[in-house]
Measured scan of single mutants.
Amino acid sequence: LNLKQAKEEAIKELVDAGIAEKYIKLIANAKTVEGVWTLKDEILTFTV
């Protein structure tokens, strides 16, 4: 999975969960695949 694909998957998951745009922007700015997954997990843990 490359960075672009990771971001697309994570953003789709966050949108489906009804997460606010400000958190989705954090994913869009992530620099690594690991960073994308870590941010996604943290956002889902603390906002859902």
Rank of each mutant, 00 (worst) to 15 (best):
A10Y: 01
E9S: 10
L14I: 03
L1T: 12
L39H: 02
N29Y: 12
A10M: 03
V36S: 01
T32R: 02
E34A: 07
T45M: 14
K31M: 13
E21G: 07
I24T: 06
L44S: 03
E13N: 05
V15P: 00
V33N: 02
E8C: 08
A28C: 08
F46A: 11
K40W: 06
E13P: 01
V33G: 01
L39F: 04
T38K: 15
A28W: 14
K40R: 15
A10I: 04
V33K: 04
K40Y: 13
W37S: 07
V36L: 05
L26I: 07
K31P: 08
K22P: 12
L44G: 02
E13A: 12
A6S: 05
E34W: 07
K31Y: 08
E9L: 14
Y23L: 07
L44V: 06
A30F: 01
K31C: 07
E21I: 09
L14Y: 01
Q5R: 11
V15D: 04
T45A: 15
W37Y: 11
V36F: 01
K4V: 10
G18D: 04
E9M: 15
A28P: 02
W37P: 00
K12G: 05
A30Y: 02
A6H: 03
Q5I: 12
I27P: 00
I43F: 08
K25I: 12
A30M: 09
T45G: 15
E34Q: 08
A20C: 06
K31I: 13
N2V: 11
I43Y: 05
A28S: 12
Q5A: 11
A17Q: 07
V48S: 15
D16W: 08
N2D: 14
I11N: 02
T47D: 09
F46E: 11
K7T: 03
I19D: 01
D16E: 14
E8G: 04
N2S: 14
V15E: 11
A6Q: 04
L39M: 08
V48I: 11
Q5S: 08
E9W: 12
I27T: 00
I27M: 05
G18N: 07
T47F: 15
N2K: 15
G18K: 05
A20Y: 05
V48K: 07
T38H: 13
E21R: 07
A6V: 09
A28V: 10
E34I: 10
D16K: 14
T45C: 12
V15N: 08
W37F: 10
V48H: 12
V36E: 00
L26G: 03
K25L: 14
E21A: 09
